[in-house]
């Protein structure tokens, strides 16, 4: 899902070296130029669809506003995400280790996924008010699921032979967890965190839509009611950039923690 995974393989020989042709970037540029041209030719009114140049201008004009409100949204995201990780990973170890916990809790977690989080948001608002708490709760709920599911898969992925090996070295349960199961689960945990990062951005904005006085979701709502589509687009772009940076940061952490896994994966890609 990272851009590196999607980019085409490097040309076989020649002076390109590490350089890869940024096809996706070219597509994007072509798209933006076409949008700008068509909007100018048919003289599209801004309240229908702003031109890319309008959006850039708006980004520049409203930079301070976007940064302040982006900070609010980011705070919600980070708190919610961290809570989801801190609750989700330990719960996943319990589910993976104990068949009883597995049968008692896992179906409920899976089943709870049918509840639309956006529908719970008003309830949480009523309970916690308009502040940070309901947003953080929604973000945590959204992130929780992919983190738990992927971590459980990870913790269960130690092969029987690996455990046999562990027993024959006389490893204690603690050693089996720290030396075998946890490292084995790390790639899955990171995959879950990447999914959660994407969902947590959605969660924060949805929660802000339902009721807030700050945040990028709030900026989008206000801009919409003022027919300032340029500001709306600017906020959306700012939000997407934040999501991408978050995703990239987790990828970076993965590279630091699991250099073996990242190089194994890039090898498998070709």
């Amino acid at each position: 899902m990272t851009s590196a995974d999607l980019s085409p393989p490097a040309p076989p020989v020649g002076g390109w070296g590490e350089w890869r042709i940024p096809y996706a970037l070219i597509t994007l540029v072509v798209f933006v130029v076409a949008w700008e041209t068509i909007a100018r030719i048919i003289n599209l009114p801004m309240y229908l669809l702003p031109k890319p140049t309008d959006i850039v201008a708006s980004l520049y004009e409203n930079w301070a506003l976007l940064v302040v409100n982006g900070g609010v949204t980011l705070t919600e995201i980070i708190f919610g995400f961290v809570i989801a990780v801190l609750l989700g990973v330990p719960l996943a170890t319990m589910i993976a280790h104990s068949p009883v916990v597995d049968r008692a809790i896992y179906p409920l977690i899976v089943g709870s996924q049918t509840i639309p989080k956006a529908a719970i948001a008003p309830l949480l608002l009523a309970a916690f008010g308009y502040g940070l708490t309901p947003k953080v709760t929604i973000v945590a709920m959204m992130s929780f699921f992919p983190i738990v599911i992927n971590s459980v898969v990870g913790f269960k992925s130690a092969s029987p032979e690996m455990l046999h090996l562990a027993y024959c070295t006389g490893a204690t349960q603690m050693q089996i967890f720290w030396l075998f199961r946890l490292p084995q689960a790390f790639p899955s945990i990171f995959a879950g965190m990447k999914l959660a990062a994407v969902l947590s951005v959605i969660g924060a904005v949805v929660a802000e839509f339902v009721g807030s006085q700050a945040g990028l979701g709030y900026v989008i709502l206000v801009a919409g009611s003022n027919f300032r589509m340029d500001q709306q687009f600017a906020a959306i772009i700012f939000l997407s950039a934040m999501g991408m940076i978050l995703f990239w940061a987790i990828g970076l952490a993965e590279k630091k923690v699991l250099p073996w896994h990242v190089s194994m994966r890039s090898q498998a890609d070709g």
Binding site: S159, E161, M162, L165, C168, L179, W260, H261
Partner: peptide
């Protein structure tokens, strides 16, 4: 000492 058909090395 035990050796299996698959090497069971730890990837990390």
């Amino acid at each position: 000492g035990i050796v299996f058909q698959r090497d069971v090395l730890l990837d990390w």
